[in-house]
């Protein structure tokens, strides 16, 4: 819409995730050959989309759902960074909170 008066920047195409609808009846969902359905006994009284899922079922998504979520902030902006190098300064015995000690790691 141009009502706001802002430049009309086209929105990026929504991902399938953003437009996919919520499953409301697990029993009607077809899974391809070789894909396990969720354990039926976990959902005997399920309603309102409140489903429970066993681990074997959930693990099947691991190698398929790899796309980074649109709403994931840049991890370094929240201080969430992978510690790929060995910690350069291990202080023997000290378990107290020590901010300056942590800063050394940078």
């Amino acid at each position: 819409s141009t009502v706001s008066g802002k430049p009309n920047i086209p929105a990026p195409l929504p991902s399938a995730l953003a437009t996919a609808r919520i499953i409301d009846d697990l029993g009607r969902v077809p899974y391809p050959e070789g894909v396990r359905s969720p354990k039926v006994e976990l959902n005997v009284n399920a309603k309102d989309g409140k489903f429970r899922y066993d681990r074997d079922f959930l693990m099947q998504f691991m190698s398929i759902c790899k796309e980074k979520p649109d709403n994931l902030p840049p991890l370094d902006a929240i201080g969430l960074e992978s510690q790929t190098m060995p910690y350069p300064m291990v202080r023997g015995g000290s378990q107290r909170g020590n901010r300056s000690g942590a800063a050394v790691a940078r």
Binding site: M62, C65, K66, K68, P69, I78, L80
Partner: peptide
């Protein structure tokens, strides 16, 4: 970090964190 409410979104997060 993020909120999510589906299995598919959970794995998208897991694979990128």
């Amino acid at each position: 970090v993020i909120s999510f409410d589906s299995v598919e979104e959970f794995w998208g997060l897991y694979n990128n964190i």
